[in-house]
Nucleic acid binder design. Structure first.
Lengths: 195, 195, 195, 195
DNA sequence: CATGAATGAGCCTTCATTCAT
DNA sequence: GATGAATGAAGGCTCATTCAT
């Protein structure tokens, strides 16, 4: 693996463990097994490292969403959404401190908002993808006429997001089984008609 | 107003505007119109100021939740929850950067987790309050038998929480009307049976 | 003496000894007997310290020039100019490395040019002062009609300036007597008619 | 052109534009169109590059001085000195920042003083050359008996030197015509007897 | 209680130089 | 000779905290 990836992985570790504020370039370098100066051969500055790591988050969710588009009309909606919800809960939980960190430095956020917009990045993309999926399923008659796709998407992902937030806040580590059970309750509540 | 409150208000302003990382004691003192030294006559340290401000957040939501307990059995459930959801959306939106900031300093979080637990503080309290309310209404037969109070509470507040998060992330400022409309869509989706 | 002056004096020492490029804030602080952080309680940054010191240079020359205005019409022109030329030679010699340093950081120079202009500062002020003096003496008929006051001033101070430059370059330390002798040769060459 | 010269020219450009302190090896390499590593295949270190460039300065002045030796006894003294003075003014003006930079790093100066002395280099050489010329002209009876050749040389070159210094300091760019006019005033003042 | 100068640890970043390819 | 990634020492500067007044 090349040094740039090594640095990125080290940075992810350190950032998740210590938070953005307490992450020093010195420690990233140490974790990456290189000199501090080397960081700057591969990244513009510390902010650049953070953003690089940030963009690498939510990988499972993203791929679950991609898979979701391929399951339109197949199986049941609830069943299709399960891996998405589970991935969301997992990824949100694992990335929460990284994602939230941006609010401790509003200038970073400000500086990159248009960049995020241009690349169509950001946490809201997931909601849009679920909404799109639900719209298609509704078109196929597989969902109630009254269902509001956008709201359904927001309820699903919003509850996962806040659950992840609170788990992090409380320092509570949930096993995959517990997470799966929670997700099932959410999905049964949102899509009760299915068996 | 005594100096302690003046400092707290100044700190809230500065923290919300600049984020925790970019908030200096010098700037808090300037905003409060006092010397840096005075901060330490009223608070143990900067962390103490931050926590003091943090505990003062979500005021509207808290009072809406208190009011909610008094409306059990009255009006409609959806109607009763509206001010709660609206307050949640507003407060979450206005406090998001302050709330999230704690994840940029996990050691602060760690250090105060048991304190939060002792005082039964934290964002999850709201969910519990809504859950309690819904259970009572369900006992009164005003809600479907299949409804899962905890999940319903999480769906409601979770969607508001994530919506607030994303508004902050995107730098989008929503008018109260837009917020109200959003909340209504959420509530109609969760409690469709009511008229 | 207050700390600000202590820092300024220490900085002058260090700057003259080591040059701007090799002068560190750490060393200034050590020489001033204070912490590095204290430098920033009294100066905006290192550049600010340098400029402060720079403005304090050429003190003898400045006061000699002030005195010069008071000697119009008295004694002989050559005699009046002697302390000026001597002070110029001394001050230029002692401050040359500080003065020249600004050319190693053209951005500092650029940034402060208008400031210099506003305060009517800069090495050219001396030439103007001598020119003004000579004009007055010429008006009084104490100088040849053909004499060009500005050029005479430039010849006088220019030769002192370059002499100081070369002394510094060669690392040659001249005694006051040698300097005085040199100045006399200059003055006799420029104002030969006087006895 | 070989790479060594390419580097030297690039370095001259960059040094004049940015000053010694703000000139990095990276930028020299970029300007020379080669890698940073290549610099060290042709020069010992950055200091070596600087000194190489420094020695290449004042080219016009040097050749004017050479020509001067050939004009002894010809034309008029003033006329002979004009190209020398003009070249001095031009070269001093164009090289001032490079020449002065050495004072921002006294250790470089110190380290190379004896080298300069050995090679009979340095800015004082010009003064000696003019002095030598004037002595010869005086021997030929083409100058007043009272004229002090060394002082005359210092007055001439010193005023040009300081004028160049001040132009650089003030950021004033003088056209060749203005420079010529200035030089003429100097020369007429120093050698008024000629027509 | 209020002050604000002094502190000093520690941060991010730069940059000349090296060396394996 | 040419390269450029890796280095690591060092630099300027910030900032929470203390303490004498």
């Amino acid at each position: 693996m090349d040094l740039k990836n090594k640095i990125a992985e080290a940075a992810e570790q350190v950032l998740l463990a210590n938070g953005l504020a307490r992450t020093t370039t010195k420690e990233i370098a140490r974790a990456a097994g290189c000199s501090e100066g080397s960081l700057y051969n591969h990244f513009k500055n510390k902010e650049d490292i953070y953003l690089h790591v940030l963009r690498g988050q939510l990988k499972h969710l993203m791929s679950a969403l991609t898979a979701l588009q391929g399951s339109i009309g197949k199986e049941t909606v609830r069943r299709n959404l399960e891996p998405v919800a589970l991935a969301a809960l997992e990824d949100f939980t694992g990335s929460m401190s990284l994602i939230c960190a941006i609010f401790s430095e509003p200038d970073i956020l400000q500086r990159h908002r248009e960049g995020f917009a241009l690349r169509n990045e950001g946490p809201h993309r997931a909601n849009e993808a679920v909404e799109a999926y639900l719209s298609r399923e509704k078109d196929l008659g597989r969902l109630r006429e009254e269902m509001d796709p956008r709201i359904a998407a927001d309820l699903l992902l919003g509850s996962c997001f806040q659950h992840a937030f609170q788990s992090n806040f409380l320092g509570k580590v949930e096993s995959r089984e517990v997470q799966k059970a929670y997700v099932d309750r959410i999905l049964h509540s949102l899509f009760p008609s299915e068996l």
